[in-house]
């Protein structure tokens, strides 16, 4: 390597670091770290609330993964006579 090449050389470690930070932010979300479950719960509830009045306390959300299969379980107790929310 000549001197000029040496001076212009870009260190590779910062690239590694940045790639990892971006990748892991994504993987942590899809691998079901806390955060994703709450996000899903909030958004799904928002959609349901548009149509039915529900008690947020009576909602159970469970995200699990086993043997490469991920499952999202949402348990919502509907009011006896579900009425469209105003």
């Amino acid at each position: 390597m000549n001197l000029l090449g040496f001076l212009q050389r870009k260190p590779s470690a910062p690239v590694a670091r940045e790639r990892l930070q971006i990748l892991l932010a994504h993987e942590r979300a899809t691998n079901g770290r806390p955060g994703l479950t709450n996000l899903l719960k909030d958004e799904i509830l928002a959609v349901i609330k548009k149509h039915v009045a529900i008690d947020p306390e009576k909602v159970q959300v469970k995200l699990d993964s086993q043997g490469g299969v991920s499952t999202l379980e949402i348990d919502i107790e509907m009011p006896a006579r579900a009425k469209p929310a105003a």
């Binding site: 260190p11 590779s12 470690a13 910062p14 670091r17 990892l20 930070q21």
Partner: peptide, 16 residues
């Protein structure tokens, strides 16, 4: 190598 910027530093790994 970490000093030269060719290997991630311990601080980088710790932060991640």
């Amino acid at each position: 190598r970490a000093e030269r910027g060719d290997m991630m530093k311990v601080e980088d790994i710790l932060e991640i």
